[in-house]
């Protein structure tokens, strides 16, 4: 609780909220892509982010690679892993009831966490790269967060342009609107599913590489991002890709602003209560998405 909230503090949290929100938006866009295209809620999304963080950590600690350059490794690697997951596992539950896909991706999720534990142990790891803050008037921003935000925005915008403008992107959106129609139009739906899962995993990896510089890395760091991404796509409306962006920013803002009033612990619950409330009041998302 903080009874003394000054305008400067408020400004600071709003900016911090937007910085964090841009990352959420990017990561959640991936989850939303999978949900939109094949109605699968991927619980392994967070653990894929965790793998991305470990790629960055590993490259940084072994060959001293710049963490931001490691995006160029983590994203393609996870793109590949995502394609493989889709090809061999998720493909087989796309048309099954939601229970199958939830369980399957949960199974993948704990297996990935275990693999990370075996490879890197459960110790907390850190990439000590960019510390310190930019100071602008009364406000201070941690350098790593500002850069992460900038990169996240760049990646999100590219992903978005890709979906809007390119042939492949249009095909992906076509499949998420109606698989039958897309099929009739000669789109190879299986291939689109693989690409979508790959892209989504790459977006998670980007999130992982960026947060690697900011937070402690450990095998179970991912789960919370799965939940947050759920929340973002619920806020934005399932299957509504611009909605995911706004939902991400909104989540960042809400979390930061409520942190002025609430303890960290309760703050965690705010996101979940919000999730349930939004589902109950507007199941199609605040910005309106496709009805279930």
């Amino acid at each position: 609780m903080n009874p003394f909230i000054t305008p400067v503090m408020l400004g600071q949290v709003i900016i911090s909220g937007l910085l964090a929100g841009s990352l959420y938006a990017m990561v959640a866009l991936g989850l939303g892509l999978i949900f939109g295209v094949m109605r699968v809620l991927n619980i392994a999304h967070g653990p894929l982010l965790m793998l991305g963080a470990y790629v960055t950590f590993w490259l940084f600690s072994t060959v001293g690679l710049n963490p931001y350059l490691s995006l160029l490794v983590s994203m393609p690697l996870l793109y590949l892993l995502g394609m493989l997951l889709q090809r061999f596992l998720v493909r087989r539950v796309v048309d099954a009831p939601e229970l199958s896909s939830l369980l399957l991706t949960f199974g993948v999720s704990i297996a990935l966490v275990n693999v990370a534990q075996l490879a890197f142990t459960s110790d907390l790891r850190a990439v000590e790269y960019l510390t310190g803050s930019f100071v602008l008037g009364p406000f201070a921003f941690s350098k790593s967060r500002v850069i992460a935000c900038a990169i996240a925005i760049a990646i999100t915008v590219s992903a978005f342009l890709f979906l809007q403008k390119t042939r492949l992107g249009k095909a992906i959106r076509a499949v998420s609107q109606s698989r039958e129609v897309a099929q009739v139009c000669g789109i190879n739906v299986g291939r689109i599913h693989m690409i979508a899962f790959g892209l989504a995993s790459a977006l998670a990896a980007a999130g992982g590489s960026l947060v690697a510089v900011m937070v402690a890395i450990q095998p179970e760091m991912g789960q919370v991002y799965t939940f947050k991404s759920f929340l973002v796509i619920v806020l934005g409306g399932a299957g509504n890709y611009p909605g995911a962006l706004l939902g991400g920013l909104l989540l960042g803002l809400i979390e930061q602003v409520s942190s002025l009033f609430l303890t960290t612990q309760v703050n965690e619950a705010v996101a979940y209560i919000l999730l349930v409330l939004v589902l109950l009041v507007r199941p199609t998302g605040l910005l309106g998405g496709r009805a279930s």
Partner: peptide
């Protein structure tokens, strides 16, 4: 009462979220 109106994956997510709310409430 409220949540069973939600369909398919939305009910599953809501239940997941509520469990987390309870966990936080238990610590709070």
């Amino acid at each position: 009462w409220p949540c069973l109106r939600l369909k398919g994956p939305y009910f599953a997510i809501a239940m997941l979220g509520l469990n987390e709310v309870l966990r936080v409430a238990a610590s709070y």
